[in-house]
Simulated assay, not measured.
Amino acid sequence: MIIDAHQHLWDPADRTYPWMDDSVAPIRRRFDASDLRAVTAPAGVTATIVVQAVHDPGETAWLLAQQEPVVGVVGWVDLTAPDVADRLAALRTATAGAPQHGSRQRGSHPPLVGIRHQAQDEPDPSWLAREDVIRGVRAVAAAGLAFDLLIRGAREHAAALTLVDAVPDGVFVLDHAGKPDIAHDGTATATAWRARMRDFATRPNVACKVSGLLTEAGGDWRNRPVDRYVRETVHTFGTDRSMWGSDWPVSTLAADYRTTLRTTADALADLSDTEREAVFGGTAERVYLAGAQPQT
């Protein structure tokens, strides 16, 4: 079983996505589960985790209404709200009482498995280290949900580490390998990225997504060291804390779905069968889906 641990669905006609400017015009349209099935099934991908793309609870509700191949939702909640625990409890209650993953009834909907906030878009680079945010993430951990870290390079690095250390019983997932600047790869760039990755990897409650690297490499990605970044990410975190994600449909700005999957698989061709199964399914299943229950 292959699990795509990071993909998106959206409908710009329903809500505004501030980051959808003209640079992403080809993907500025509705994508739903039917579009997803059309690309995952031919590639042999049997399940996906869909991830929020805007700070809007309405989008999370829409994602929770999607069907297969989506098996889990990383949604959004206002972490700074005084009643954040109640909001999370309401979402968890809404997703409780249905068959476990692996025995989903046809027509059932995916459970909430995590929360994400696009910290990279916050004006304050220390947003993740704020006391009200830490309190909110503690509520996420108490609800049994993972927290995805979306940060870019060094800007939010220190704040993200502060958050992880402040919530030692939480489960964190670093999106897109911390968004390395592969398009401008050089000795200094790579060295700084490796140091940041080691900082996260020393925290045993942090997993990492091998995702979004083709788009980080830019339109000339075939001539950039994407393979090296893939391999170093997995080497740094280990296969039991690494998971593949397509970042579809954002990834289509660089390559089609099959190419995104194949590029990662080829870069990790020297892994054993057991290690490959972890990166392409086992880690995501353990981190996101253990104990998660879909809606009916």
Rank of each mutant, 00 (worst) to 15 (best):
A94N: 11
R241V: 10
L79H: 08
E275R: 07
R30T: 10
G281Y: 04
I182F: 09
V173F: 12
V50L: 05
D21P: 06
W193C: 12
D4A: 01
P26K: 05
R104E: 15
P225A: 09
A146W: 14
G58N: 04
H117N: 11
V113C: 11
D270E: 14
L145R: 13
K209Q: 09
D185M: 02
A13W: 06
P42H: 02
A192R: 11
G114F: 12
L88E: 01
L213P: 11
P110L: 01
P111C: 06
K179E: 01
V140F: 07
D78I: 08
P12A: 08
P111V: 09
A61P: 03
R286Q: 05
G97M: 02
I27D: 11
D273F: 03
D11W: 04
E122R: 15
P99R: 09
A81D: 11
E68Q: 07
I3N: 01
S272D: 10
R222G: 08
V39P: 10
H184L: 06
V51Q: 10
I115L: 10
D175N: 15
D132I: 06
A53E: 00
A53V: 00
F31W: 14
L253P: 13
S108L: 01
Q120A: 14
A142I: 02
L145T: 11
A61Y: 03
L145P: 13
Y17G: 01
A255D: 14
R203P: 07
V50M: 05
V173P: 04
V70W: 06
I182P: 08
P26T: 06
T40L: 00
Q120W: 10
I115A: 08
L268S: 12
Y288H: 05
A160D: 07
R37A: 15
R228V: 03
R276M: 07
T215H: 10
L91G: 05
A81N: 05
L289Y: 13
D22E: 14
A119C: 11
A284C: 15
D175P: 05
E216A: 08
L271D: 06
T95N: 07
T215P: 13
R87K: 13
V71W: 07
A201L: 04
E68Y: 00
C208K: 04
G212E: 02
I2C: 07
Q7F: 06
W19P: 02
V234C: 11
D185S: 13
A25N: 05
E277G: 07
L214C: 15
L161T: 13
A142E: 15
T48A: 15
V226P: 06
T16H: 13
D181Y: 10
H235T: 15
R15S: 03
F200T: 00
G107V: 10
V173K: 08
E131T: 14
A278P: 03
S211L: 03
H117Q: 14
I134V: 15
D273S: 15
K179V: 03
R155G: 03
V234Q: 13
R194V: 00
A188L: 13
W62H: 02
A53P: 01
D86Y: 01
P125M: 10
G245C: 04
A166T: 15
D175V: 06
L9M: 12
R92S: 14
A5I: 09
A192D: 12
T48E: 06
P294N: 07
V77C: 04
S34P: 02
H8K: 02
T215A: 11
D32Q: 02
D169E: 15
I49N: 06
R130W: 05
A160G: 09
L161C: 14
P42K: 02
V250C: 07
